[in-house]
Computed example of a mutant assay.
Amino acid sequence: MKPLAYRVEAWRRLGELLDPEKLTTITQSITLDEVVGASNDLLAGKIRGRVVVDLA
């Protein structure tokens, strides 16, 4: 709920501090068809990191 200027600065700093290679090790992409299975795995504690749903 911070003003836009604070949020822009936070994202800018994250862009400088995060190592893109390390980010890819904790991120996985899934298709929309895989969302139900992934959500079950998430609730069961089987997923760590971030899941990105690729809508393309």
Rank of each mutant, 00 (worst) to 15 (best):
M1F: 11
M1N: 07
K2A: 14
A5G: 04
A5Y: 09
Y6G: 04
R7F: 04
R7D: 08
R7C: 12
V8Q: 10
V8R: 11
E9Y: 11
E9G: 05
E9F: 11
A10Q: 12
A10H: 10
W11Y: 15
W11C: 09
R12P: 02
L14M: 15
L14G: 03
G15L: 10
G15V: 09
E16Q: 14
E16R: 12
E16I: 01
L17R: 09
L18G: 03
L18T: 09
P20F: 08
E21A: 12
E21W: 04
K22P: 05
T24N: 04
T24K: 14
T25C: 08
T25G: 04
T27V: 15
T27F: 10
T27W: 05
T27R: 10
T27E: 10
Q28H: 11
Q28I: 09
S29V: 14
I30H: 00
T31W: 01
T31P: 02
T31Y: 00
T31L: 13
L32H: 05
D33S: 14
D33L: 10
E34H: 02
V35R: 03
V35T: 11
V35E: 04
V36P: 05
V36H: 02
G37V: 06
G37L: 00
G37F: 01
A38V: 04
S39T: 01
S39M: 09
S39G: 01
N40H: 06
D41P: 05
D41T: 07
L42T: 11
L42C: 04
L43H: 04
L43S: 10
A44T: 02
A44V: 04
I47Q: 01
I47F: 01
I47L: 15
I47E: 01
R48Q: 15
G49I: 08
G49P: 08
R50S: 14
R50L: 15
V51L: 13
V51F: 03
V52S: 05
V53E: 04
V53G: 05
V53I: 15
D54S: 13
D54W: 05
D54E: 14
L55T: 12
A56S: 14
